[in-house]
Simulated assay, not measured.
Amino acid sequence: MPRTEFSVVICVYTEDRWPDILAAVESVRGQSLPALETLLVVDHNPALLARLRAAYGTDPGPGPGSVRVLANAGPRGLSAGRNTGIAAARGAVLAFLDDDAVAEADWLRHMASDYTDARVMAVGGRTVPAWGSGRRPAWFPEEFDWVVGCAYKGMPRGRAPVRNVLGGNASFRRSAFDAAGGFAVGIGRDGDRRPLGCEETELCIRLKRAVPEALLLLDDRAVIHHKVPLARERFGYFRRRAYAEGLSKARVTRQVGMGKGLESERRYTTRVLPAAVARGLRDALLGRRGGAGRAGAVVAGVAGATAGYLVGAVRSRAAGPDSWAVAAPVPAGPRQEGRP
């Protein structure tokens, strides 16, 4: 069977993350299954674009270890940056890595093993937090690790079908974009201070509608380590991110309907979170460190996300259908031999 060829897309936007960007690229170069190429897509930052081009050159051509530096060809934001990478990529499968994360050496190899099944259209991996303080804050519940862009308690383990993959550690066949279009512009992070998201959720739901037989998998062997700066270990950020998640979910459900838009969240809120509160209260009664804080954080997180959802639902209705997001068309990139 021909080898699966990966193009890895890393979207970047600030020179403040320069060491992190270099580390992310080096982790791709160190893969046991070499990537065809790494694409660095710069989000409307000419200084960073020039600095990266000076570091990596212009277009070295495809090959293990090659890095191409591109300017975001669309409006400011993560979705348009990813679409720029999709349009330019030469690989059969496109993998997405956050600019402040490093992939373990077998990241791509584990993902590639899942694509031997022709029905698989997307594979996501497990994202582990790398706490800036050196350890998890005692009050921070594992069930809310999605707040810092990581896998959270309550997600499936092993290799399992999922509704959607998480965008910072994910891969898609190119044919998935041919069928469903690109990431929706107008949802997700766009340089604004509010940490919105859910653009990958909307894409995955749209993909399943376009290709009903498609399988989307979580393979927790495909591991990356995501940097969590000290500012994101604070309760203020936790509350803002939970509220923003509610806003984002309202946008998604406006587009795809509540049935699909909140399918996974129902089990999470009715089973996983009540159990988390109970564990936190039990630990508090037993005198264990952080128990009361974790229980309180779960309650605060649910309240924040609910408030954000209600506000977002009102705003989405006022804005009208489909006014917030348009799926950007994705031109077919050059084809490579050995597509899965």
Rank of each mutant, 00 (worst) to 15 (best):
Glu104Gln: 13
Glu104Lys: 11
Ala105Trp: 06
Asp106Arg: 12
Trp107Cys: 12
Trp107Thr: 03
Trp107His: 15
Trp107Gln: 04
Leu108Met: 03
Leu108Val: 02
Arg109Val: 06
Arg109Glu: 14
Met111Gly: 09
Met111Trp: 04
Ala112Phe: 00
Ser113Val: 08
Ser113Asp: 14
Ser113Gln: 13
Asp114Thr: 07
Tyr115His: 04
Tyr115Gln: 01
Tyr115Lys: 03
Thr116Glu: 15
Thr116Asn: 14
Ala118Leu: 08
Arg119Phe: 04
Arg119Gln: 15
Val120Lys: 10
Val120Glu: 13
Val120Ala: 13
Val120Arg: 09
Ala122Gly: 05
Gly125Gln: 03
Gly125Arg: 04
Gly125Asn: 08
Arg126Cys: 09
Thr127His: 03
Pro129Cys: 00
Trp131Thr: 02
Trp131Tyr: 09
Gly132Tyr: 05
Gly132Ile: 03
Ser133Trp: 00
Arg136Asp: 01
Pro137Arg: 00
Ala138Asn: 04
Trp139Tyr: 08
Trp139Glu: 02
Trp139His: 02
Pro141Trp: 02
Pro141Lys: 00
Glu143Lys: 06
Glu143Arg: 03
Phe144Tyr: 09
Asp145Thr: 09
Asp145Ser: 08
Trp146Asn: 06
Trp146Lys: 06
Trp146Ala: 05
Val147Asn: 06
Gly149Pro: 03
Cys150Ser: 01
Cys150Thr: 05
Ala151Asp: 11
Gly154Glu: 02
Gly154Phe: 01
Gly154His: 01
Met155Val: 01
Met155Lys: 05
Pro156Asn: 03
Arg157Thr: 12
Arg159Asn: 12
Val162Ile: 11
Val162Cys: 13
Val162Leu: 09
Arg163His: 14
Asn164Lys: 12
Val165Asn: 07
Val165Lys: 11
Leu166Asp: 12
Gly167Met: 10
Asn169Ile: 08
Ala170Tyr: 07
Ser171Phe: 02
Phe172Cys: 04
Phe172Gly: 05
Phe172His: 09
Arg173Pro: 10
Arg174Gly: 10
Arg174Leu: 10
Ser175Ala: 15
Phe177Thr: 11
Asp178His: 14
Asp178Leu: 09
Asp178Lys: 09
Ala179Met: 07
Val185Ala: 11
Val185Asn: 03
